[in-house]
Design a protein around this nucleic acid. Sequence first.
DNA 1: ATTTGCCTTAACCATCCGGTCAAACCATGT
DNA 2: ACATGGTTTGACCGGATGGTTAAGGCAAAT
Lengths: 199, 199
Amino acid sequence: MEDLTKAEEKIFSAAKEEFIEKGFDGARMQAIADRAGISKAALHYYYRSKEKLFKKVVNFIFNMVFNSVKQKIEEKLSFEEKVHFIISMYIDTILQHKHMAFFLFSELMKHPQILDELIKKQEKITTLSAAYQAELEKGKIRSIEPRHLILNVVSMCIYPILGSPLIIRILGFSKTEYDAFLQERKEQVFEFVMKSLRP
Amino acid sequence: MEDLTKAEEKIFSAAKEEFIEKGFDGARMQAIADRAGISKAALHYYYRSKEKLFKKVVNFIFNMVFNSVKQKIEEKLSFEEKVHFIISMYIDTILQHKHMAFFLFSELMKHPQILDELIKKQEKITTLSAAYQAELEKGKIRSIEPRHLILNVVSMCIYPILGSPLIIRILGFSKTEYDAFLQERKEQVFEFVMKSLRP
DNA sequence: ATTTGCCTTAACCATCCGGTCAAACCATGT
DNA sequence: ACATGGTTTGACCGGATGGTTAAGGCAAAT
């Protein structure tokens, strides 16, 4: 992101809050202006329309979330360590940006075209599936279709966090209990995956 | 649901479509009236307000989805068969009611209070975790915290479907490819779970 | 034929919302 | 002191939106 003046900064952060809380349809330009402590006219002076402001916010949040997730996985790590690293990182990152992650998921579902503009490449899979291949040939793990493996891991990390408000109510957790439960999951999911991959 | 006149039926089904496509904020009463082929005033005559109509729709869809998911698991099935049954049923049901499931997820996230009115009980867990206990004592599977097991299974079934528009784009599937992939998952997830549960 | 009660509609209302504009504000350079 | 140009604002606009109302239509009951 280019450098922003203080006014632009305040507006942008106000817009992030409003859009994350209310979504595109629910967000109000006046509410964004109020949060930023300026007039609605000034808001339009900086960001000409709701759509443009929204797209900038989505773009920013998308990059923020995906950059934190896409940290380099060090080459020297073993396959097992890589799996463990990916799981921990996914859970920590998504937990940290919970609201943003849900906002992204929700809005991108409604307007999937936005994704097309944002997605360039995604090498994460190859980096893991290469390590998987090597491990497989050493006979240390069983054979499995890599895309299913990836989707299994990602699902077990993301869904319990994305759907937490629902899951909490359905399984009868308290919020603090569920936070602890999600921390446990870092080890639990790792164990679940590695146990499944035994030859 | 009580019996509805033909007019009410048409209106209700029009409302379902509109709300599912646009969500509460995006839905328009006029659009619902148009779909149903009546005037906006007639619409308000039957369902007094947008909120009331919305809640009835949510309630209906919630029951429809959860009732199909909550089919009885026959007692005589073995633990393995039960796991397989749950996975297949989850994937089939959610796949069948894809749009409704996403609508529910999305709207319930924004207004979790609605859930409180809808949730009475949820015995699904006990029915499976009892079978799990028995199997564990026979030494046929390893020990695992049942809530993690359940959440793992549910996540691997739900997330790949809920997030399909995103996943398709990120993993570079076509829609038909992805449909086949999701069918494969019924066996893949089952195998993944059972392999993990080996002692 | 008239009443009764359900249904439908066109017209209308108040409010809200995104966006515009002309005027004012203010710091800087001359 | 004055002009310049970026910044800020209150007032306003057009259109959309949820909701209301008064009047009428229509079919069955009287």
